[in-house]
């Protein structure tokens, strides 16, 4: 049975460089750091491809009061996690887009609009998108993000989306690309390569 994309939220803030989405979802459906997602743009004619780099859960005074207690009844923990309107907020870096011509590894022409649906990317699309590695430059250029961790995790998740016999080849190719992009920074390169090998 083919994998179907899962809706993980709706866009609340956005620009051509990325977007922030929010949704009240269960722990199992939380987006994963370093995973790829897609947000509808241009009235459905294109999708912005985002790389999740931050996941946060907002709090309030009531949640803080309960958190400070030695013991919280299980019913109240479940109420806080399932019923209360505390949205999970995730931020994604725009690393490409998809239109009639397929995937492109460049900034999208337009950002998604407010409340656009955001979906997780299915393995087939993830493999398709990461068959080119130009998006690694976009990650390395992103300011104030945990770039090295993000890059390593994104590549490892992309490798896992491939058949087992292709994974090592993909990671080797990605390692070479990173070495090409970071020729002056050997310490950093070594850390990233170590992360890919782990």
């Amino acid at each position: 049975m083919p994998e179907s994309p899962m809706m993980i939220g709706r866009v609340t803030r956005c620009s051509t460089r990325g977007f922030v989405g929010a949704m009240q979802i269960s722990e199992n459906a939380l987006p994963v750091f370093g995973s790829l997602c897609q947000a509808e743009a241009q009235g459905g004619r294109s999708y912005v491809v985002g790389l999740v780099y931050d996941i946060s859960i907002t709090d309030d005074q009531f949640a803080r009061q309960l958190a400070a207690l030695e013991e919280v009844p299980q019913e109240q923990i479940a109420d806080g996690q399932i019923n209360r309107h505390v949205p999970v907020e995730f931020s994604a870096l725009a690393v490409g887009f998809h239109n009639d011509g397929g995937f492109h590894q460049a900034l999208p022409p337009q950002p998604p609009l407010t409340l656009a649906s955001v979906f997780s990317m299915v393995s087939k699309d993830s493999v398709d998108f990461t068959s080119q590695l130009h998006f690694l430059q976009t990650i390395l250029n992103a300011p104030q993000l945990p770039v090295d961790e993000l890059l390593t995790t994104a590549l490892r998740l992309s490798a896992q989306a491939r058949p087992e016999e292709e994974r090592e080849r993909f990671l080797l190719q990605a390692g070479r690309e990173v070495a090409h992009l970071l020729p002056q920074d050997l310490t950093r390169l070594e850390n990233i390569l170590r992360g890919l090998r782990a």
Binding site: P73, Q74, E75, Q76, A78, D79, Q81, I82, N83
Partner: peptide
Amino acid sequence: SIVVSHGSGKAPTI
């Protein structure tokens, strides 16, 4: 409205 079922461990019904 809310129903908290103490002792059930389940999320309340709202």
